[in-house]
Nucleic acid binder design. Structure first.
Ligand code: MN
Ligand code: MN
Ligand code: MN
Ligand code: MN
Lengths: 217, 217
DNA sequence: CAAAAAATTTAGGCGCGTCTAAATTTAATA
DNA sequence: TATTAAATTTAGACGCGCCTAAATTTTTTG
């Protein structure tokens, strides 16, 4: 089986290659893994030997079909554990990422399968991200960013693009939680900030840093 | 903080030193950790440097107060996770040890605390072993072995001394589960096997290999 | 109690995942 | 396009946890 480190690399390569498609760069991986480019090069050679990535020196890397399957297994475990932590243990959505980062490496098919059942086979994690299927495919969901919504539209908050605790706590304080209905009443031509009305009749201004990271439908 | 490996050593040293008190021997540790004596020596030097064990070369080893505290933290996590796996996910008591062996190393005070609350602050794990307190002390429980019970006595099964899946499955098949009331009706003078009556009116013979590993009160 | 046996530690080495410094390749620019 | 700059890989090293073989200490035994 693969080591924790290898699993982390696969997961990160998957995330980066969907974020900006095309080959994933060594430096980008070094930043995400909080290591140095030299360390990444070593690991890429190993992953290539194991046929988990396509790798031509100096040309960046891409997951093989098998590598993507493995990455999605890790992501599935991560997101299921996040659901558990929030829904069963009462953690806030801003607290669960680091813990799930460890839990995701516990390898027991039986455990994942029973956890999934226990949670009612959820489709989305606490951040609105889709949970890969047991078969190893990622459900494709199309959301718009709140920054792309026009004045007068009413939409529902479905997910976030930024997962930092700071951002999530900011949303909590603003009352912008998942499932929340918002109506765009005004868009500032000056700084692109957006005035929204919540179902609670409250209204507030949302900066474009926030609207760019909020997914709605 | 301590590595997975160090945590495993502490836990095993604790287990061995309560099983047969006095210093724990290098060879015993090598067998339990499934490594070689030379590897154990290396690790003992490291644990001694960290003040987690008392260690005089060739003289065996004993946990320091801090070492015991750390060991009990790991054991607490292990047993809480076992309760979770059995009570919430529906695993059998014979299936949970290896998974808990991984889960026990996830270090988050908050996680353990919330898990404990979620489980209703259980006092015992699925094998009847007491769960150490958050403060790091092991509840001392006095049980007798079924092999020490006299004819005519009625007792309740409270725990097991042997944790192998094979033994636990054997108990399942015999109907000897935790909390089960058994009345000793006869003890064979030939092989010390014991005839017991269950509350279900069934009776069966229990070999001395089994009675020696069943705790009752 | 001296010799043999058993237990334990030390010496030297290996794979993993990491690092810094140096070499190499690719991309940018004058 | 020839140089310079940036990105990437290679060389050599290190700590961790493990190994085998050899040395050392303790225990057993004739
Ligand atoms: Mn996460
Ligand atoms: Mn998430
Ligand atoms: Mn166990
Ligand atoms: Mn147990």
């Amino acid at each position: 089986m693969h080591s924790f480190t290898e699993e982390n690399y696969l997961k990160i390569i998957y995330a980066l290659s969907t974020r900006q498609n095309g080959e994933v760069t060594t430096n980008a991986l070094a930043e995400m893994t909080a290591t140095k480019a030299a360390s990444v090069s070593d690991m890429l050679r190993k992953l290539a030997d194991k046929q988990l990535i396509h790798y031509k020196k100096y040309q960046g890397v891409r997951l093989t079909a098998e590598g993507e399957r493995q990455a999605l297994r890790v992501i599935r475990r991560h997101r299921l554990w996040e659901v558990f932590l929030v829904q069963k243990l009462g953690f806030g959505w801003d607290q669960v990422h680091d813990i799930a980062e460890e839990l995701e490496h516990i390898r027991s098919e039986e455990l994942v399968s029973r956890l999934d059942t226990f949670l009612g086979s959820p489709q989305f994690d606490p951040h609105g991200d889709p949970i890969p299927t047991p078969a190893g495919t990622m459900p494709q969901i199309e959301y718009r960013k709140l920054s792309d919504v026009s004045v007068g539209e009413e939409v529902t908050i479905m997910g976030v693009l930024e997962h930092s605790p700071e951002f999530l706590q900011h949303l909590d304080r603003s009352g912008l939680t998942l499932g929340c209905a918002v109506k765009v009443s005004e868009i500032s031509s000056f700084d692109k900030s957006v005035q929204v009305h919540l179902s609670s009749e409250k209204s507030l201004f949302v900066s474009c840093e926030v609207t760019r990271n909020l997914l709605v439908n």
